[in-house]
Amino acid sequence: MHDITSRTDLFLLMQKFYAKLLSDNRIQYIFTDIAQIDLEAHLPHLTDFWEQTILHQGSYRKNVMQLHLDLNAKEKLTPEHFTVWLEHFNKTVDENFKGDRSELIKTRALSIATVMQLKISQKSHN
């Protein structure tokens, strides 16, 4: 197994990761029913985000936090949703990659999920 080194690696990771999410009844409905994502159109944006975050390349400019706050307004994102998301994320990374960037992407995912949960919780208490 090799480390994450390219956009191609990140795209593959996102494809496999979302296949897991979309087959898990605990979370799948958020993507299909609430967000109604078009996965084929969404995958390049996800890859852009992680490419900027991990490889420091690209020009991703969307406000990820706001996108999730908007989603939370439609359907409350619970701690269980974040736990399921992180479990699938980490498992997908571990099944496909090994190395420093592979560890870094898991750490960043945990940080992002933690900050999102805090901000969502904060927003719902205001």
Rank of each mutant, 00 (worst) to 15 (best):
Q66T: 13
Q122I: 04
G58N: 05
E103C: 05
D3N: 09
H125D: 09
I34F: 10
E75P: 02
V84H: 05
E95Q: 15
T83M: 10
Q28W: 04
Q15G: 10
P79R: 10
D100G: 12
W50F: 05
T32H: 11
E80F: 07
R7A: 06
F97C: 03
V115F: 10
F31R: 06
L12C: 04
G58K: 02
A109D: 04
R101N: 15
R7N: 07
I30Y: 04
N63S: 13
Y60K: 10
M14D: 13
L10W: 01
L71E: 09
N90G: 12
L71S: 04
E95G: 07
K62S: 12
Q52P: 01
L104Q: 11
E75G: 03
A113T: 06
Q52C: 07
E40I: 12
T92Y: 04
L77V: 13
A41T: 12
T114K: 10
T32D: 15
K20Y: 12
L67T: 09
H2M: 12
E51V: 09
E75C: 14
I30P: 00
P44Q: 09
Q28A: 15
S23E: 15
K91M: 06
M65Y: 03
F97R: 01
L39M: 14
D94M: 08
N63T: 01
K76L: 06
H42V: 02
E103K: 06
K74E: 11
H81C: 02
N90Y: 12
D24Y: 06
I120W: 02
S6R: 07
K76P: 02
D33M: 05
D48V: 03
S121I: 02
Q36W: 03
Y18V: 04
L67R: 06
F97L: 06
G58V: 11
I34T: 15
W85L: 06
L22W: 11
H68E: 08
E51I: 03
I34W: 09
I34H: 08
F31V: 08
H81I: 11
I27D: 02
N63W: 14
D33F: 11
T47L: 08
K123C: 01
S102F: 00
F97M: 09
A73K: 13
Y60Q: 03
A109R: 00
L10F: 01
F89M: 14
L46K: 02
K76M: 10
S59A: 07
S121R: 09
L39P: 01
I27R: 00
P79V: 08
I4R: 00
Q66Y: 03
T78K: 05
L12T: 13
H125F: 09
P79E: 13
K106A: 10
T53Y: 04
I30H: 05
L39H: 04
S102Q: 04
D38K: 15
F97E: 07
A109S: 09
V64S: 15
F82S: 13
Q15P: 03
D3K: 00
A73T: 06
L46Y: 01
L104S: 06
S124K: 11
M14I: 14
Q66R: 14
Q15V: 12
I37F: 05
T5Y: 09
I120E: 03
F49C: 05
F82E: 06
N63Y: 07
E87D: 15
L118E: 07
P44V: 12
K20G: 05
F82R: 05
L104G: 04
F31K: 01
T53Q: 14
K76C: 10
E75V: 06
N72G: 04
T78I: 04
S6I: 11
K106H: 07
L10T: 01
H68S: 04
T78Q: 08
